[in-house]
């Protein structure tokens, strides 16, 4: 059985486990949906009070907001094993069990938990994105749709890279890992607004050092037809895949090192 088919089996097994406590599950879904909706409600309140921000309308901001939330939500459904790696696998010794199985650790962790909870964020992101598309003129569908999918793919690769990097770091420390939230939840927070609201140093850091801008701001500029470098903006999401590849190499090195230190 090939890797993808095995991952699907893992996912199915994990789903049947999650829906076993329907009460707690529904409560979690409701809470998660509320949390994410509040995020956009706050933006709406700000626009209600101030009108526009640096020439951007609420409809345009909705596009940025929707895109980055969809990207992160998809990543969270498959990347939970990495997000919880330090607490659920390393501290409990359960990682040894993964090493005892004849499959790539990354594949096993991706399949560890296919989570439904982030679907609330996904639904919310999709709804806000649709709202933005309804309110804002964009380039023709023939360009917009593939560009959107390409951006989402790059975004999932980027966020997955962050979670894999976080898991690899937890071989060194579990306590200070909260700092990675700067890139995950903080990345979503930053990506919800057009990058030109931010200071120059921040924009450059989040585009070149950490390619968040390359998978959120740049492709959306291309879709809005506002990019000064349309070709570069169209190719930008590839940076997400490059980032993922680097993080996977880091992960492999960390796993090898783990085997020689033992704990």
């Amino acid at each position: 059985m090939n890797g993808f088919a095995l991952w699907r089996r893992y996912a199915r097994a994990s789903l049947s486990g999650q829906t076993r406590y329907p009460g707690a599950f529904l409560m979690q879904m409701a809470g998660h949906l509320a949390t994410t909706l509040m995020g956009f409600a706050a933006i709406w309140v700000l626009f209600h009070r101030f009108g526009t921000v640096r020439g951007w309308t609420v409809g345009q901001v909705a596009l940025f907001y929707g895109l980055v939330n969809i990207e992160f939500a998809l990543t969270e459904t498959i990347g939970y094993g990495f997000e919880r790696f330090g607490d659920d696998f390393l501290r409990t010794g359960a990682f040894d069990r993964l090493l005892l199985r004849p499959r790539w650790t990354v594949l096993q962790l991706l399949g560890h938990q296919f989570r439904l909870r982030p679907l609330a964020r996904l639904a919310q992101g999709a709804a806000i994105l649709a709202l933005g598309l309804a309110m804002t003129p964009v380039r023709p569908l023939l360009f917009t749709l593939p560009m959107m999918l390409w951006a989402i793919a790059g975004g999932v690769a980027f966020f997955l890279g962050v979670l894999i990097g976080q898991a690899a770091l937890s071989f060194r420390t579990i306590e200070s890992l909260e700092i990675v939230n700067v890139l995950t939840y903080g990345g979503v927070e930053a990506g919800q607004y057009p990058f030109d609201l931010y200071a120059r140093w921040f924009r450059q850091l989040m585009t070149y050092a950490i390619p968040l801008g390359a998978v959120s701001y740049e492709p959306m500029l291309a879709i809005l037809g506002r990019s000064p470098h349309p070709m570069a903006a169209t190719l930008a999401p590839a940076a997400g895949f490059a980032f993922l590849a680097i993080m996977l190499l880091y992960w492999q090195a960390a796993v090898r090192r783990h085997a020689s230190t033992g704990n």
Partner: peptide, 23 residues
């Protein structure tokens, strides 16, 4: 002292998953 089966899954589902993992 450690389980390799899946806590929330029925035993037989765990076996089936292991079958696929070990090919």
């Amino acid at each position: 002292q450690r389980s390799q089966l899946w806590w929330d899954l029925p035993v037989d589902d765990g076996f089936a998953l292991l079958r696929d993992i070990y090919r």
